[in-house]
């Protein structure tokens, strides 16, 4: 059973995503900050990471993605963010600065999220 790490400082979003994933047979681990995300990544060894951008600092997601890829470049990262709506910022994946495997805007429909998760896990 694939394990998915959700890193996001939005408690409600984390519980909703966790519900969607567990009810579809995935194991989950959660973290609410960049540091906790890194700790859980090491301890839980997830198969996929769902990652927010703006947490304690506005660039936490990018910084964590860079650190995670240094630890394990094969673990896929799906960046989930509403940063575009909040700040008007427009980002895209980039192997150096935004080393994520896919990029999705919040809010995201459960079916679409599951589709993306399965796709990244190679299911």
């Amino acid at each position: 059973m694939a394990k998915i790490l959700i890193v996001d400082d939005d408690i409600d979003f984390v519980s909703a995503v966790k519900l969607v994933l567990t009810s579809n047979g995935f194991d989950t681990a959660v973290a609410y900050s960049r540091q906790e995300g890194m700790d859980k990544f090491v301890s839980e060894k997830p198969d996929l990471v769902l990652l927010d951008v703006m947490m304690d600092e506005p660039d936490d997601g990018f910084v964590l993605a860079q650190s995670l890829k240094k630890k394990s470049k094969d673990t896929p990262i799906l960046m989930l963010t509403s940063v575009g709506q909040v700040t008007g910022m427009d980002f895209d994946k980039d192997s150096e600065m935004v080393p994520v495997d896919d990029f999705e805007q919040k809010p995201i429909m459960p079916n679409h999220l599951l589709e993306k998760v399965n796709q990244l896990l190679g299911n």
Binding site: P58, M89, E96
Partner: peptide, 10 residues
């Protein structure tokens, strides 16, 4: 943070 966000921006 400034440099990271500008570096990540499209």
């Amino acid at each position: 943070i400034k440099w990271q966000l500008a570096g990540a921006a499209k």
